[in-house]
Simulated assay, not measured.
Amino acid sequence: MLTGKQKRHLRSLAHHLNPIFQVGKGGVNDHLIRHIEEAIEVRELIKITVLNNCLEDRNEIGQQLAEGAGAELVQVIGKIIVLYKESKDHKTIELPV
């Protein structure tokens, strides 16, 4: 579980990232979660865009993606979801204590 200070730090790092995945009309599925797991292992911090044609609630989508990928939900703001998971092999982000 991330503290408020750690979430603030991750949000500041994520600000400059571009979204690498999109959730559309199909919603969350196993295929999407598998790709997110692979990407988050390499990058640790990723952004995901929720498209306008997606009818599900953005907060629920964020929770589903975080649980499916075993990651932490950092932020849901507007149409953007930010996820973080500490990498086993490619650790680059140092969280504040």
Rank of each mutant, 00 (worst) to 15 (best):
D57E: 11
C54H: 04
G24R: 04
V97E: 13
N18D: 12
G70S: 01
L51N: 12
T92A: 13
R43E: 05
G26A: 15
Q22W: 11
P96T: 07
Q22I: 12
E72T: 11
A66T: 02
G78K: 06
R8T: 15
L83C: 05
D30M: 10
S87F: 10
I46W: 01
P19K: 06
L95I: 01
I61A: 00
E41Q: 02
G4C: 13
G78N: 07
K25R: 15
T3Y: 03
H15A: 13
E72H: 11
K7V: 12
H16Q: 13
N18M: 11
R8N: 15
K88H: 15
Q63Y: 10
V42W: 01
I61Y: 07
N52V: 14
N52Q: 15
D57F: 07
K25L: 12
L32M: 04
H15K: 13
I33T: 06
K79M: 03
L10V: 08
V82H: 03
E86C: 14
N18Y: 09
I48V: 07
K85P: 07
E72Y: 10
R43M: 08
N59G: 04
G24S: 09
Y84I: 05
H90I: 09
I20W: 04
L55D: 14
L55F: 11
G68F: 00
Q75D: 10
E67D: 12
A71E: 02
K5T: 15
H35C: 12
D57R: 06
G26R: 14
K47C: 01
I77R: 04
K7S: 07
E38F: 06
E67K: 09
K47T: 07
D89I: 14
V28Y: 06
E60S: 08
E56N: 10
I81M: 06
P19Q: 04
C54N: 08
I77Y: 06
F21S: 05
K85M: 12
P96A: 08
